[in-house]
């Protein structure tokens, strides 16, 4: 049975699910309810963070232009440019057994592409969620519905995975930022071009 989390909540992953090593992080959202206006293109990314909370290089940042990082432990299954349909709009695969030992935390984010020109923000996005699925059994372990109160944010940290001793835990974050993906990169110690 899936567990629904609320904002800020933390939960064990590998401890309560022994044998769990590979997960699918499914991210979803609804946008084009109204006609007219520009299409939305939302992008999921993963930031692999060291002890100091920073990403150190290209292998620590998985996004549409760099679909694999963390020595291949974190992969992006591909850019979805419409967000149409039910279910996950984009997916990121994480293999906990292969995450480099110096990575303490993995931030999963969603940002709006070209938000300035298209005059878009997360206030216009609804039904955003993240769910974690056991890749070996397709069983959904947990789900976090982000709620409906985003406003002018253009980047949202959906959740974070983090080490706790030998285990990995999950935190439902749901925090929004202005400035899109480049602001998140700066926040996580990367210089985006």
């Amino acid at each position: 049975m899936t567990i629904s989390l609320s904002k800020g909540q933390r939960i064990d992953l590998t401890k309560t699910n022994p044998g769990l090593t590979k997960v699918v992080v499914g991210l979803g959202w609804d946008t084009n309810k109204y006609s007219g206006g520009k299409d939305f293109d939302l992008d999921a990314s993963a930031f692999l963070l060291h002890e100091d909370g920073k990403a150190k290089g290209e292998d620590d940042f998985v996004f549409y232009n760099n679909p694999s990082g963390g020595s291949g432990s974190v992969t992006h299954t591909g850019d979805n440019r419409t967000g149409e349909g039910d279910g996950d709009d984009e997916q990121i695969l994480v293999d906990f057994s292969k995450v480099p030992a110096n990575i303490q935390r993995i931030g999963i984010t969603v940002t709006i592409y070209d938000y300035e020109a298209r005059v878009q923000n997360f206030g216009q996005v609804s039904n955003a969620f993240v769910r974690v699925v056991d890749a070996s059994s397709d069983r959904e372990i947990l789900r976090f519905d982000l709620g409906e109160d985003f406003s002018t944010e253009t980047a949202v940290v959906f959740c974070e995975f983090y080490r706790h001793g030998a285990d990995w835990k999950f935190q439902a974050v749901g925090s929004g930022f202005a400035g899109g993906l480049s602001a998140l990169c700066r926040n996580y110690g990367l210089d985006a071009q």
Partner: peptide, 27 residues
């Protein structure tokens, strides 16, 4: 652009208060 009906905004309840959401989109 093509809209012939638009939602200007919505007044809505949130945590016991009233908020306003600027929808500015239509059909």
């Amino acid at each position: 652009s093509v809209e012939t009906a638009v939602v200007v905004g919505e007044l809505y309840r949130y945590s016991g208060e009233w908020k306003f959401s600027a929808i500015v989109a239509g059909f």
